[in-house]
Amino acid sequence: MIGPSSSHTAGACRIGKVVNKIVDDDKLTEVKIQLSGSFARTYRGHGTDRAILAGIMGYNSWSEEIRNAMEIASERGLKYEFIAEDIPGAHPNTARITYTCASGKTGFIEGASIGGGNIRIDNIDGMEVNFSGESNTLFVLHQDKPGVIANVTNLMYWRYGELNISGFHLSRKERGGDALMTLELDDLPPEQLITDLKKMDNIDNALLIHAI
């Protein structure tokens, strides 16, 4: 990794990277990054700001571009703002990233950097999640309708028989509304699975976060 702090740089970059994965092909135009706890007080010294921004733009914790993340963001026309403001009850190293895309899509994630570059994402678009990044993790944003979960797991089993699910979590905003499946997998699924999932009925988006 590129220093100087694993939780404030590498972990921060990985939290940013989750936004990059969620946004996918859409172009990000604006991000607002709220830093809480120790993040809020040390982000300039630790390079947390640069690291989160680099992650949002798709760079990795070992990318040397972290050092020039602000300049790269400006070149790309990505507006960014950092706000140091505590989130009550949050882990000491928490960031909330709110984003807007060229297509008008907006959303947010909230995550904590829990040491050694490990992260925990706690919230995506108001839906509680609990994802560590220690396993390959698949997120499926979908509509809360009967059969969607079965369709996803059936596809995984019938077409990619060797894929084993090691963890499963579901959350939804309201009955029949937006919902989010979090599936932790033992092995890395092929990219084709993501493409297939996105084509399915009642599925809005699917994304894969690789294990650390």
Binding site: M1, G3, P4, S5, I66
Partner: peptide, 15 residues
């Protein structure tokens, strides 16, 4: 090297 934002291995952390 870490304080200069060079490449290091976090063992267990960068600090």
């Amino acid at each position: 090297c870490n304080a200069a934002m060079g490449k290091i291995v976090a063992t267990p952390t960068a600090g």
